[in-house]
Computed example of a mutant assay.
Amino acid sequence: MRFRAKMVDVGCLNNFTRIVHTISKLTKMCTLRLTVHNLYFMLSEKVGSGGVSMWCELSQGNFFDEFQLEGMAPDANEIYLELVPENLSRALRTTQHAKSLKIKLTKKHCPCLTVAADLPSLSSLSRVVTHDIPVDVIPRKLWQDFKEPSVPDFDVSIYLPPLKTMKNVIDRMKNLSNFLVLEANKNGEMNLKIETDLVSVSTHFKDLGNPPWDDDDSQGGSQECAKMAQVRVDIKRLQQFLTSQQVNPNKAVCNIVRERIVHFILLHEDVSLQYFIPAVG
């Protein structure tokens, strides 16, 4: 079992650093799945106990100049690692001006992802900074627990307003309640609402647009399209998701399963991030 990769382009390095930083803000522990073509950062908590799920997919060819992988077996050319993403994020932040970056799976006192950065030097000698990040290798028999989540059978799908705008709204609302109602319809309208015994506050967004997942979605009457689907969520979960973002997506989509779950999809040219927040009663 071997893994070795090299990154030379500064733009790719900075982009990869931003993505890992985003992951580190979303979860304290995650699974990194390495395949020949892609990298995946995964989190799957128990939704029944209020847990969230995350699935972040990167095409390795868009980041790495060299990428070598030998999995656990010829018919299973993959590696699954459990790690603390903050440790990887911290290591990458020290390599912002590196001439190149190497990442490989090593065996020190325990399995590690070793990050080695070739940094600029005033002398002719190279200056290499190395970080050893402890990881746990997940055995093959447990791989079935880490499957890509399917897009839920949602009631409404809608494009999100600018994430920074949405974050500013949530930041003001969080002091009023622990919970927020997010609702949207097929007319491109979305509302964020706080309702308590003492106060009722709402923010309205219009003309956001609805993704064309299914042409049948647009066949409903005006009353059907205006009907709101809503979900009540923990406002801290939503704030955490919005605060963490450094992906700068080209498209951001929200899918609502009425009273059950809200599913966010952030799409960029070289990365996709899915995040699931379950409803609260």
Rank of each mutant, 00 (worst) to 15 (best):
V47W: 07
H109W: 00
Q144S: 14
R237K: 15
H204Q: 11
P139T: 07
S44L: 03
V201H: 04
V253N: 04
E70F: 00
A91G: 01
V36C: 03
Y159P: 05
F64W: 15
K193A: 15
E259D: 08
L122W: 00
S100P: 08
S44Q: 09
M7C: 08
A5W: 15
V36K: 15
R90E: 04
P161W: 01
V280A: 07
I194T: 07
G50F: 00
E195H: 10
H268C: 10
C30N: 14
V8E: 05
A91W: 08
K141A: 06
T165F: 02
P85S: 11
V10Q: 10
E66W: 01
K25Q: 14
L88G: 02
H21S: 12
R258D: 02
L13Q: 07
K46A: 05
F16V: 07
I158V: 13
G71C: 05
P139H: 11
I133Y: 04
K28Q: 15
P162D: 06
P134Y: 09
D217R: 07
S200M: 09
K104N: 13
E269A: 12
Q274N: 09
E57I: 08
F179A: 13
L113A: 01
R4N: 13
N87S: 14
T203K: 07
T106V: 08
G209E: 06
M1E: 05
Y159E: 02
D197S: 11
C110W: 07
Q144T: 13
H131Y: 14
Q219L: 14
S89F: 05
S218M: 06
T27F: 09
V47S: 14
D75N: 08
H97M: 15
S123E: 08
V20G: 08
V47I: 11
N187Y: 02
E269S: 13
E78K: 15
V84R: 15
M29H: 14
L192N: 07
P212E: 11
V231N: 10
L273F: 13
Q239M: 04
T95V: 14
R172V: 08
V151I: 15
T31L: 02
C30Q: 13
D136N: 13
I194E: 05
L266K: 08
D153F: 01
T27L: 06
G188I: 00
G50P: 01
S124F: 15
P120K: 03
K99V: 10
V253G: 02
S200R: 12
K147F: 10
K141H: 13
V262M: 11
I23D: 00
K141N: 13
N250A: 03
E224W: 05
A117D: 01
T31G: 02
A117K: 12
H263W: 10
N250H: 09
L122D: 14
L180D: 02
L208I: 11
S157K: 07
R172S: 10
P111N: 06
K108P: 02
M190P: 05
W143Q: 08
L142N: 09
P249A: 04
V253C: 08
G188L: 00
K236Q: 00
T31M: 12
Q96Y: 10
V247E: 00
D155G: 06
A226Y: 13
I261T: 12
L69K: 10
D207L: 00
N62Y: 13
N250T: 10
M7V: 07
L182V: 15
T95N: 08
L34I: 14
F276E: 10
M173G: 09
A116N: 06
N77A: 04
S59N: 09
H97C: 11
I19L: 12
M190H: 02
